[in-house]
Nucleic acid binder design. Sequence first.
DNA 1: TAATCCAATGTTGTATACAATTTAGTGCGC
DNA 2: GCGCACTAAATTGTATACAACATTGGATTA
Lengths: 229, 229
Amino acid sequence: MAPKENARDTASTKVAEALAEAIHEHRIAPGTKLNEDEVGEIYGVSRTVIRAALQQLAHQRLVELKRNRGAFVARPTVKEAREVFEARALLEPTMTRHAAARMTDADVAVLQSHIDAEHAALAAGQTGKALQLSGQFHIEVARIADQSTIEEIIAQLVARSSLIIALYWQRRAALCESNAHHALIKALANKDGALAEELMKNHLLDLLTSLDLREQTSAPQSLSEALKV
Amino acid sequence: MAPKENARDTASTKVAEALAEAIHEHRIAPGTKLNEDEVGEIYGVSRTVIRAALQQLAHQRLVELKRNRGAFVARPTVKEAREVFEARALLEPTMTRHAAARMTDADVAVLQSHIDAEHAALAAGQTGKALQLSGQFHIEVARIADQSTIEEIIAQLVARSSLIIALYWQRRAALCESNAHHALIKALANKDGALAEELMKNHLLDLLTSLDLREQTSAPQSLSEALKV
DNA sequence: TAATCCAATGTTGTATACAATTTAGTGCGC
DNA sequence: GCGCACTAAATTGTATACAACATTGGATTA
């Protein structure tokens, strides 16, 4: 989350982050075409930096690039949704166990502050921000486990998860019911690795089953695309 | 491996692949600076496409971008090496079990052909190509498991592993002794998921322990960099 | 009327030009 | 001789110009 120390292209990274936020908050619908000139004028930069930003987002699978045809906001399929959560299920429980062993008081405080901020955002009706914070919780766990490589992978998967949740969310009331996160913090604070691991496993399963993953979803952007398949 | 259907930027992707090959074959030493003009002239394209290629490679962690200072061939640390193999250890055994359940005769043939090609490359002294094929084996397993998302993650980790192996390889004689791969194929062909999973787990452990992961490695590129820390 | 071809328009891919920053070297002062 | 400041060269960051490709709309023809 902290702006990468030596990441090149501050300008394009900023644009990429702004676009990512818009995508996660569903202000841009999946499938929408991102015209380079248009986006460039919005952010007041040239196509050069827009293209770099779009490439970054493509690597995160938040947009899809089609050669000679442009960039489109990603529309994750049901299969992709399952796969993303399968990957998380393989990585995060173990990370949680490792995190429990390394947990410090400061870490507990950080996680708790994330939950608090999430609640505040929910109360303020900022579901987009709440979703982002909820995801950040999972990334923090990997950071605490001191596994930066896996942390980056999880960060990517979390970003994709946000888009997936925005698309397939079913029971809209409880957003990633923070009970799960709360129980997790407790187990982590007690350094109960086995319990924390199990809780994370179940939490991810809950997340997945809370999605409506029947085929057919949001209406496609264009008729031609609808009839193509 | 198959050139992504709709990946944009054929030109920059080709350059990125050429550079990646050179990096993996150790023709460019880790830490080397990749001057944009220079690389551009070599491949006969403008800096525009070089920069796109370098950004792609940065996402794969094969090069590191430093703002206003340029691109450098990545020099994975010992910690990073451990982390990459830890990630693989979490993902690949399960993938192997899934692959066993879905294995077809065609899949067996594909895997076998990979091993054969690897042996041929080794016999011809093309260790770089052999290493690449050896890695491809692992990616194929994920493909057979029909988990394209995890397949992509593993592909990235394999690419980084190649660089790590090139840096930290210890017993140079036997390259990823294909006995392991051979035994794996057998278990997969027999649809013995439990055995295949165990073999993969051990294979990854073997790989990791075959590395010389004591701190201090290749000499730094420049004195200033050596004295900086 | 419907289908097809072609031209005109718009969009992306690439190269080049310019601006901002870093790096290297030179000379000055101590 | 050593260190510092300053200038010039080199390199990256960004914008613009041009080329290649795709799309759209209308005209033509059956």
